[in-house]
């Protein structure tokens, strides 16, 4: 299982790297306003860019390897008489983020991402008596992990409406979100439900864009190196590969389609604070790590005569292969409003 922060950073960068072309395409009326487009390849604005992003992820399906299993199948597999066993039945993870982008010069840009998270989970528990109960966990919300990134345009053939561009990125995910929230019984809430990871994680990125206007294609590779948190938990490292195509339908609309591949390694709970293997499917690092493929259609709208644009994305899984038993993503929505100043 991935921490929400990891998923979020990747999806945001995909948006950023693939969305900044819309303002510079095609016939542009009396004159071609390029405010809000990019000079370095990933710039949201000449001076400062701000985005507000809402993301909503639903997780219901449980898989063993790539096969779907029901919550009751998992309970019956692991419950033993005299003890209890819990599995998640429904998870809703939401995130509202403020993103600032500031170009430093024609090649460098810095980004800051400040997320607020809200996580909800329903569970089914089989009690020692053999009785099964459905329950809703307390909502977890708060500031997530702030990420700072530097993006460097290693090559571009033009400052705007480039046909070839190579961008490199390096970032740090900081441990600003809480990672030690406990439930009413005094135990740590599941690691992936915590607002933060508690670790300083480096992030590396490479992006190559090739355009045959009005068609733009892009490959992104992102590697998230997870480190051990102050509570001894270490999420699995994550590698993302994205193949993206965008097509300009009109001056103000882009349609996009992406294929996303995600590989995540197993988590490690060095101090055992989050692990309850005998009683919970979620609190078990054997049930972490996965390989997933998604398709992501998107639509982007440039708000006329402004530096603003709106993008909607819907991500659907096409193949998921998990280690052990895991609840997986069934769908993910994302809406982003960006403004260039």
């Amino acid at each position: 299982m991935l921490h929400y922060n990891n998923k979020y950073i990747v999806l945001f960068l995909i948006t950023l790297l693939s969305s900044s072309q819309v303002n510079a395409l095609g016939e542009c009326g009396l004159s071609c306003c390029i405010g809000g487009t990019n000079t370095s390849g990933v710039t949201l604005s000449e001076n400062f860019g701000l985005s507000v992003q809402y993301e909503r992820m639903n997780m219901k399906t449980i898989r063993r390897d790539s096969q779907e299993v029901s919550p009751d199948d998992v309970i019956n597999q692991f419950w033993s008489s005299g003890s209890s066993y819990a599995v998640p039945t429904d998870m809703l993870m939401e995130k509202l983020s403020l993103i600032g982008a500031k170009p430093l010069n024609e090649r460098w840009q810095i980004l800051g991402i400040v997320p607020l998270v809200r996580n909800n989970m329903d569970m089914r528990r089989k009690m020692p008596s053999g009785m099964t109960m459905n329950m809703t966990m307390d909502e977890i919300s708060g500031l997530g992990d702030i990420t700072l990134m530097g993006l460097y345009t290693a090559y571009t053939d033009a400052p705007i409406r480039a046909k070839k561009r190579l961008t490199l990125g390096f970032g740090i995910k900081t441990p600003t979100g809480e990672n030690d929230i406990r439930n009413p019984m005094g135990n740590y809430v599941h690691a992936m439900m915590q607002p933060g990871t508690g670790s300083w994680d480096p992030i590396f990125m490479l992006s190559y864009m090739r355009a045959w206007y009005p068609l733009i294609t892009q490959i992104n590779i992102l590697y998230h190196l997870s480190t051990e948190s102050d509570q001894g938990y270490q999420f699995g490292n994550q590698l993302n590969l994205d193949l993206i195509a965008r097509y300009q339908v009109s001056n103000y609309f882009n349609l996009g389609l992406a294929v996303n591949a995600i590989y995540a390694g197993n988590d490690r709970d060095h101090d055992g604070l989050y692990s309850q293997e005998a009683t919970s499917m979620v609190d078990n690092t054997n049930n972490t790590g996965l390989r997933s493929y998604f398709v992501t259609p998107s639509v982007q709208y440039k708000i006329p005569n402004t530096g603003g644009n709106l993008e909607l994305k819907y991500q659907l899984p096409v193949y998921q292969n998990v280690h052990g038993y895991q609840q997986v993503t069934d769908s993910r929505w994302m809406a982003t409003l960006s403004w260039a100043y």
Partner: peptide, 18 residues
């Protein structure tokens, strides 16, 4: 001249073409 990385655009604060 080619302003490949947008250096001149940034210097002269160009936001519109032409």
């Amino acid at each position: 001249l080619l302003d490949q990385y947008g250096k001149a655009m940034r210097h002269y604060k160009i936001k519109v073409l032409p």
